[in-house]
């Protein structure tokens, strides 16, 4: 474990806590894409398949349970909790996210480190996570103004993978034979997808204005 990875995990944890806080306290999921949340459930479900078979550390298992539990409960809230579900704008959140999964599974079957069920599933979850934010960013373009919590959620979610990139660079230079091109490239693509959001988020913060992405 290194400081970059810890910062990444804490930023990721903060993003799901911000979203849970928003949904649980103000009972609103306005501006939040259910499609992205559903993709994240699949990302965690396919990435942590080995949660009971391979033990890395208490920290690792605990965080996996937290990410699994939070992503499932966010989807549950947005789908089945009456008050929250009412604030979900279904008309705007129309990204066909199931179509995102197909290329990811095909790519995972073609490009992976080992052709085993667990490894292909794990690689699929990496590719899927790289594009999971797309429905949320599309929704953001459509809903004119978004509230601070949703903006912070997206900012933290994008930032965590940025810390992971620093972690991979650090591990590359400190651990011999630590080379994982698949992880590095999909992590880089994932972070780059946030580039324009980061730009407009920074502008809104600098000019102290509401965050608005250009249509």
């Amino acid at each position: 474990m290194n400081i970059f990875r810890l910062a990444g995990d804490m930023t990721h944890l903060a993003s799901v806590l911000v979203l849970l806080l928003k949904i649980h306290t103000i009972k609103s999921c306005a501006g939040v894409s259910l499609k992205t949340q559903e993709l994240y459930v699949i990302v965690f479900a396919t990435r942590y398949l080995d949660i009971f078979t391979s033990f890395v550390s208490i920290y690792n298992s605990l965080m996996k349970l937290i990410f699994l539990g939070s992503s499932f409960s966010i989807v549950w809230y947005m789908r089945y909790h009456k008050a929250v579900h009412r604030t979900y704008d279904r008309e705007q959140d129309t990204f066909r996210h199931w179509f995102l999964m197909l290329p990811c599974i095909l790519l995972a079957l073609l490009i992976h480190e080992k052709f085993t069920f667990f490894e292909v599933m794990w690689t699929f979850s990496l590719y899927l996570e790289a594009v999971a934010i797309l429905p949320q960013l599309v929704l953001l373009q459509r809903t004119r103004n978004i509230d601070n919590l949703t903006g912070q959620y997206i900012f933290l979610l994008g930032g965590y993978r940025g810390f992971y990139i620093l972690n991979w660079i650090y591990r590359y230079f400190t651990e011999p034979h630590y080379v994982h091109w698949i992880t590095w490239i999909s992590g880089l693509v994932q972070t780059l997808l946030y580039a324009d959001f980061f730009y407009y988020y920074f502008l809104s913060w600098k000019n102290n204005k509401k965050l608005q992405l250009p249509a």
Binding site: D9, D50, V56, K64, N167
Partner: peptide, 10 residues
């Protein structure tokens, strides 16, 4: 033998 390399990152 290289032990089963499990993924140690989240």
């Amino acid at each position: 033998a290289n032990e089963e390399e499990s993924h140690d990152e989240l």
